[in-house]
Every structure is written in C-alpha cells, then in structure tokens.
C-alpha cells in the first residue's frame, strides 16, 4: 500500500481517517439521542437496533423539553468501533432524530440509574439488609414488619453489587430505570 501523500501544511487538519482499520474489540458506549417526541419514535429507534442486529444493554426515554416536544433517549450499547460508528450514523439519519452524542467518546460523563428493591425477611437477615442499605446509601421508601422497599441510585455496577448482596437476604423483586447520563462540565 502506498503511503498517504499529503503535503505538509496543505490542510489545517487532515481529512483522512487514518485508523489503519477498525479494531475487533467489543466496546460499550452510552449514546444520548435527542428525538422529536412523536408517536412511534421509540419503536423506530428500537426497530433500528433489532433490524440491524445491534445490542441494547439499557434504554431510558422520557420527554425532556415539553415545549419543544423533545425526548432524550439514553441507550447503552456494545459492539466493535465500526458497529458503534454505524449505530451513530444510522441513528443520525433518522428523520425525527435531532442530535446523537456518544457520551463515552466525547469525554467524561456521569451515568446514573435508579432502582427499587423489595427485600423480605425477619430477624438477623432483616437487620443486615438495613445495615447494608445504609452503606450503599439506599433509602427505605416503604416498610412493613416483614419487608423493606429500598431506593438506590448509582452506576449500573453499584446497583448490581447491591443486588448481589440482597439476594441471600430475601430479595423478592427489583425494578430498574436504565441509565440516564450527561456529559460532565459546562
């Protein structure tokens, strides 16, 4: 293959995509997609993922601009860098999509998920559940003599870790919101 022959200083920055070729390593990316909140828009986005065989690890959607009728879809997906680029390009060309941000690639971002846990039990297990909830800064949002409902926010990993601890202590049910994420800084 002949070398790229671009005169020095001819351009302010290179237009060439100089990556030799894409890596085969699977990466996880969090994408924020701003869409018109019109009927069927979520089906469109999900249909794109299923139709083209992309992964969805987590999906969160809610209207964030009531006047502009804009919803923000936060989707955590995984794939090779080429697949991730394809996903962004495919999302970007959909008519109701306004913006696509790759929060993983664009710089540091905060990611949070909220979960509710129902834990039932009596005696030591119940006390231990409460003590661990305290360590995880989970709050009790409902209680009976045999049960707690804990509310916890954090990264997906933190919630997974909390679930692992609660399972032997009587975890009955769990509800998770999926990831919400924003870029750090102004």
């Amino acid at each position: 293959m002949s070398a790229l022959n671009i005169k020095k200083g001819a351009t302010s920055h290179s237009a060439y995509d100089l990556r030799a070729s894409y890596s085969e390593v699977i990466e996880t990316h969090t994408l924020a997609v701003l869409v018109d909140n019109e009927a069927g828009v979520l089906a469109r986005v999900i249909g794109l993922f299923s139709g083209r065989g992309y992964n969805i690890e987590s999906l969160t959607v809610a209207e964030v601009d009531h006047e502009g009728h804009l919803s923000r879809i936060t989707v955590v997906t995984s794939g090779t860098p080429q697949v991730i680029d394809q996903i962004k390009a495919q999302l970007g060309r959909m008519v109701p999509v306004h913006e696509v941000h790759d929060l993983t690639a664009e710089g540091p971002a905060v990611q949070r998920e909220l979960a509710l846990f129902k834990v039932t039990g009596q005696g030591d297990a119940r006390v231990e559940a409460l003590r661990l909830a305290d360590i995880f800064r989970a709050s009790v949002v409902d209680t009976t003599l045999e049960s707690f409902v804990f509310e916890i926010t954090g990264t997906a990993e933190k919630i997974d870790a909390f679930a692992d601890l609660m399972r032997p202590l009587g975890l009955r049910e769990m509800a998770r919101t999926g990831v919400a994420a924003l870029a750090r800084g102004a």
Binding site: L4, Y16, D17, S21, Q82, Q86, G92
Partner: peptide, 20 residues
C-alpha cells in the same frame, strides 16, 4: 487508498473501511 463520496454518512465505513 479509498475515497468515498456519499450523502448518507451511514453508507461510509459500513462494509469497507475508507481512508477518505
């Protein structure tokens, strides 16, 4: 070396990696 002129960004680097 390959250049790809296309109005649809999703067509680029979908199957064949292009330098430009």
């Amino acid at each position: 070396r390959k250049a790809h002129i296309d109005i649809d960004p999703s067509s680029v680097n979908k199957i064949i990696h292009v330098e430009l």
